Simulated scan of single mutants.
Amino acid sequence: MNKQPKVITGRREFIGKSAAATGGAIAIASGVTLFQVGQASARPADESVSNKVRWGMLVDSNKCADGCNDCVTACETENAWGSGSSDEQQSGASQKAQWIRTVTLKNNLTGSEHQLPMMCQHCEEPPCVDVCPTGASFKRADGIVLVDKHICIGCRYCMMACPYKARSFIHEELTNQNPDVPRGKGTVESCTMCVHKIDRGDGNTACAEACSKAGHNAIIFGDLNDPESNLSKELKQQASTQIRADLNLNTGVRYRGI
């Protein structure tokens, strides 16, 4: 009796076998190629993410120093998308990734200005997930909003849906990537809340670490569901707000001083 061929039922298994057969390169759509750049040190596939935790941040704009860009630089370095990376060298300013950027808010009545970092707000009800036709944009049980590069077709609906302009499209071939943060031409990307660091137990994001190291302490990362976390205590102690709270997205990033 002839043996029946083994059917690959899982996308992860298919991708792994395809990568082995092609030397690590996977063509997932016309003009879209992902490369296996190493084994990421994220949470093991058989270890589920719990909704007991909801990761979030508090940004105190009163503590953001004028002209400071430490959080952006740290994110660029940690995730290999900014200064010195291949995409910045090859792309124009309009195509540069924007995982995090600094913006200035001005009150036209009083003239007061506040500088603050803007990134994916990791909404509880993310519009990017609602409009994604393939399910590439998704929210983990712990509140982190991500993009699955293996099924992203680059339609950019999520970029149009995001009210925070927090997502970018990769136009160019990429080299010298961080093995923990795989990226791919023809796909959309945004702040991952340093998910690779969180899953391996670092307990903080690159932007918050850099802000603390600089002595500003304007960014606090933590568990919104844990009343004993520093983040929850700070939120309880003083008022904070959500950017575009009128959209009722229940963002994971909160701001103070705006």
Rank of each mutant, 00 (worst) to 15 (best):
K149A: 11
G82Q: 02
A218I: 03
L146A: 07
E172Q: 13
T175P: 00
R256Q: 08
E228H: 14
H216Q: 11
H171I: 15
C162I: 02
R12T: 12
Q39Y: 04
A65C: 01
F138V: 03
M1S: 14
I153P: 00
S91Y: 03
D246R: 12
V145C: 05
A93C: 05
E124C: 03
G203H: 09
K213T: 13
Q4S: 13
I151K: 01
L109H: 09
N69G: 06
S229N: 06
L105Y: 08
R43I: 11
A80H: 11
G23I: 07
I28W: 13
D60K: 09
G16C: 01
C155D: 02
Q98K: 15
Y164F: 12
A19T: 05
S94A: 14
E113D: 04
K17S: 03
G92E: 02
S50F: 04
K139C: 01
D199I: 11
C211V: 05
V32R: 13
A74F: 02
T175L: 14
K6R: 13
G135F: 02
P5Y: 06
S41P: 00
A80T: 12
K63T: 04
V195H: 09
L174N: 07
K165D: 10
K52G: 10
S41M: 13
H122E: 04
N217F: 14
H114Y: 08
W99L: 12
P179Q: 09
G24N: 08
L58P: 00
C191F: 10
S30T: 15
D246N: 12
E88L: 15
G186W: 08
Q95N: 11
D87H: 15
T104Q: 05
K185A: 13
V253E: 05
T9S: 10
T134K: 03
H196F: 14
S18A: 15
C162H: 03
V103F: 07
G16F: 05
G84P: 01
L249A: 04
D180H: 06
D226P: 00
H216V: 07
K213D: 03
A29S: 09
C152T: 02
D226W: 08
N79T: 14
